[in-house]
Amino acid sequence: MDNVALLVQIFFGAALINNFVLHYFVGICPFLGVSRRIDMAFGMGCAVTFVISIAALLSWTFTYYILRPEAPLPSWLWRLAGGDPEVQIDLSVLSYIMYIFVIASSVQFVEMYVRRFFPPLYKSFGVFLPLITTNCAILFACLEIMKHLQDPMHLWGLAEALTLAIGGGVGFTLAIVLMAGIREELELCDIPKPLQGAGITLIVAGIMAMAFMGFTGVDQGIQNFLNAMIE
């Protein structure tokens, strides 16, 4: 049950309290660029959630088995090659290159898969999919997962990694859809000329970030609630 409480905390932490966009400022480019209409914003949010989950799955696997300090696969190869068993193998210097490769190729595969099997979905995702390669939200999720795989005492499992990724994706979708809703209304407002476009969007994002600061402590509350339910 401890495990479920941790997962709940990770999910709400990533989706609401430390929202990827409004707290960590990752994925700002699509947040400003594709938030003009609600349906497009929702499409972008879904695409990001989808890719972020796949990238998290792959990067957790690679980090856990190959890249983290004392990872099993390189250590086994090292011993097989007759290396000194006392030496600790640490390939984490390669992790950034590995992550960007994983992200770029998973975007490519997702694009091919969706085009082949879900043509209507492909039409609606369209241009967003290639753009996601340079979306820092995905890389950020990979880096967070890597951070939690450094200490051999407290290793994250695949479930934690996936929960973080899905929570982050949901948080991104929430933020971008809310922003699109506000921007649709802003079309009707009389905004001073210099602030039109990106300026007013950023100011609205600032106010949204203030509102999201109000979620601080929500995860603790939900945890207490879960614990009370168990008892």
Binding site: L22, L195, G199, T201, A205, G206, M213
Partner: peptide, 15 residues
């Protein structure tokens, strides 16, 4: 805090 970053950048862009 994070909101300040958005507000300052938005206003500076406008300026």
């Amino acid at each position: 805090l994070p909101p300040g970053a958005f507000l300052v950048l938005g206003l500076l862009l406008g300026l």
